[in-house]
Each structure stands twice: as C-alpha cells, then as structure tokens.
Design a protein around this nucleic acid. Sequence first.
DNA 1: TATTTTCTACTACAATAGTAGTAGAAAGGT
DNA 2: ACCTTTCTACTACTATTGTAGTAGAAAATA
Lengths: 130, 130
Amino acid sequence: MALPRLSRLELQIMEALWTHGALSVREVLEHFPAGKRPAYTTVQTMIYRLEAKKVLRRAKKIGNAHLFEATVSRNAAQRRLIDELLGFFGGQMQPVMAHLVETGKLTLEDVQEAEKRLRELADKKKGAKK
Amino acid sequence: MALPRLSRLELQIMEALWTHGALSVREVLEHFPAGKRPAYTTVQTMIYRLEAKKVLRRAKKIGNAHLFEATVSRNAAQRRLIDELLGFFGGQMQPVMAHLVETGKLTLEDVQEAEKRLRELADKKKGAKK
DNA sequence: TATTTTCTACTACAATAGTAGTAGAAAGGT
DNA sequence: ACCTTTCTACTACTATTGTAGTAGAAAATA
C-alpha cells in the first residue's frame, strides 16, 4: 500500500520524528512552537492515528511511556507532497518557479545546482541511448 | 479576509472556471475527466460552498441555469498553495528542486528562465541600493 | 508506602470535505 | 397545453481532521 495522505497536523508530528528520531507523545508536543501547542491528548490521538496508518510505530518503552518512530521516510512524504502540488499545476512549472523567484525562496545557488543536475542527467541519457 | 483554503475538489472546480470563464454546474461537471465524474449535485454543492466562501459568484443566468465565475485569481490561489508547501520544507528548496529535476518535471528551459529572472532581480536590487 | 504525577487507552464531539438524494420550479419540446 | 428534461434549493449522511476529556494503570517521589 502506498503511503497515505498525511494531513497538516500529521505532517507536523512526523516532522518532529524525522528530525529527532524516536519520541514520546510529550516530546512531540514540546516540539510544537510554544503558544500554539495543542492539548497533550490531541497529539496523542494523532499519533495513534498515524500508528493505525502505519507511518509510525512504537519503537520502545521508557518508564511507562512509549517512544514512537517514523516508518516512512521524510523523503517519500515530501515526494508525495510535491507530486500533489504538481497535479494542480498540470506539470506547468513556470508559475511555480516564478513565484519562488519573486519571493526570494529560490537562490541563485539553488537554480545553478538544479541546472548542473539537469545537464548531468542529459549527458547520461545521451550516452546510454544508441 | 484572505482567500480561504481550498480543498482538492474545490480547486478542481475553480480550475474549470479559471480556464473556461463563467460556467454552469453542468459545464463544470463536464470538465471532469469522464470516468471520475462526481454526481451533478455533488458539484452543485461544492459550487454553493465556494459561493459561500466568496471565491466565486453568480455571473448571469442563461435559461434557468446560473453561470458561475471565479472572483479570485488563479495566481493568488497558486501562490497560496506554494506558500503552504514551502511551510513544510521550512524554506529549504533543495529537496523540492531535486525531486523536480529527477522526475523530469523541470526542464532546462524552466531553470534557465528562472536564472535569468534571478539575475535581473539581483541587478535591480544593486542598482537601487546605495 | 501513601500521594502525586504522568501515561495510556478510550470516548466524544465539532468542523470540513466529499458525496448524493429529493421536491418542486422553470424551460423546452411536441 | 402537456409531458419531459434540467435546474435550483435543501437536506442528509459519511469520512477525515482537529480537538480534547475521562478513567484507570504505572511510575515517580515524598
């Protein structure tokens, strides 16, 4: 089964696990920006749901608390997100790039790095074919 | 009020309006890929909800049918989507770019165009400052 | 060991999203 | 004018997401 769609809150929780490894409910909670922390049991519920979706599992137990760890990679989840976004743009990347450039989210280094990669891929393809 | 978050189905409906202008419920329905068309009233319900959110309005009436048109631009909606995506990546665009390149979603032209834009912006900034 | 704290396991409920049926008005065709 | 089709305006129900309370077990601590 492909990895399921993760909601906003679910992703925030997974982020904590991807970044810090196995965590308890309380630790996940504490990785939320103070001020906008949901209730302890809210995080707990979401973690249980993520467990049901099998994107995380109970790794071990410390004291009476379970530690949860991600079972899907951040990379896979990111790809899914990106692909969904692409869906809306029907493959048309110009507007996306344009917006990223205008708002300064994309640096010259980012772009040059991408260009280098593209050229490498192009070369490899040419070499392989015929 | 900022434009509200639009769900998947809502975006699909808006897409039809952005692309084809004012449409009736039935016309929007027909712009769904045959095979995965929801019921007529499903589309109708979503359109009513979009109307409540004020992202579209009744433009005119042809026969007994209303024609609906978008009141927010596709561009604004796209920006919102992109910004949301950025949130998850914490501004780190490398993984996004990498994925786009690997999967061939980004062409060399796309990247070069972006690079040109970036240089223009850089020049303008330098000129303005000092 | 008695008390307090902290967790787990459940349950509950509101909001949003997706899906669609029904009744009756309006238009269209014959 | 009458039957048929097409719309509108409501209503309804399910699934998902976000949010959190409660009861009781387990651990920490006084």
